[in-house]
Computed example of a mutant assay.
Amino acid sequence: MAVGDQAQSGWDRRLTKQRLELVATVILAVAALATTFSGYQASLWDGIQSTDYSKASALRTEAAQKHTEANQLRLADLSVFESYLEAQAIGADELARFYRVRFREEFEIAFNAWESLQPRTNPDAPPSPLAMPDYQLAVEQQARDLTARAESTFAAGQDANSYSDAFTLATLFFAAVLFFAAVSERFSHRPYRAVLLGIAALGLIGGAIITASQPLTTG
């Protein structure tokens, strides 16, 4: 080989080496930034998940309290109604009036609707005002609303958890990119370096696709 050809070959090798080093540097820099970003997003979504789960738990507790309150009101309405019927049955009109004026408004509405069906002679009438569709407890509706909010908040927490997992997976991809790009610097044989950088580039693309497919948050 002529001296000129040897010099040209040496120049080509140095140029290729510089290009590979430049590619490795770019991949390392991008992967480092991407690792930091995806780790940050995973941490934020973890915090959102924890907050949503805590809120959902508190809402369920409040809903349970409202359900308990509704059951207590239902029992109280039933007790006063039974006492009213007993007073009527024994002809104690004054005692019956005593209980009648103590009907709660929500029960009063259902009682009037029940009375309009003439339950004493109508076998198709519900057994008591509590079985009427008019018997609606506001606190029970509040309990249902709280339960629905709890389920919605818990679902949001599950979504946040899946986003966090995705960003964590992307972080693993970027960590692998850092490894292969850094290891490529250890090899002087250009094909080996090119293969390792190719693997790193694929990992970078994979991590970028995962990251781009997830919603971002500021916490």
Rank of each mutant, 00 (worst) to 15 (best):
M1L: 11
M1V: 09
A2T: 12
D5M: 10
Q6L: 15
Q6S: 07
S9A: 14
K17P: 00
L20A: 04
E21M: 08
L22I: 12
T25M: 14
V26Y: 02
A29T: 10
A31L: 06
T35E: 06
F37Q: 12
S38N: 13
G39R: 04
Y40N: 13
S43E: 09
L44I: 09
D52Q: 11
D52E: 10
R60I: 01
T61V: 10
T61K: 07
E62N: 06
A64Q: 10
K66Y: 02
T68C: 03
E69R: 07
N71D: 15
N71W: 00
L73N: 05
R74T: 14
D77L: 05
L78D: 13
S79D: 15
V80M: 07
Y84A: 02
Q88Y: 03
A89Q: 05
L95H: 02
L95N: 01
A96H: 10
F98Q: 11
R102M: 14
E108F: 01
N112S: 06
N112C: 00
A113M: 01
A113G: 03
W114Q: 00
T121F: 14
T121C: 08
P127M: 09
A131L: 13
P133S: 12
Y135P: 03
L137V: 10
A138C: 05
V139L: 09
Q142C: 09
A143D: 09
L146E: 12
A150Y: 04
F154M: 12
A155V: 08
A160F: 05
N161E: 15
Y163T: 00
T171V: 11
F174A: 07
V177F: 03
A182N: 10
A182D: 08
E185V: 11
R186Y: 08
F187R: 05
H189D: 13
P191I: 10
V195P: 01
L197C: 05
A200T: 08
A201R: 00
G207I: 02
S213C: 05
Q214N: 06
P215R: 04
G219H: 07
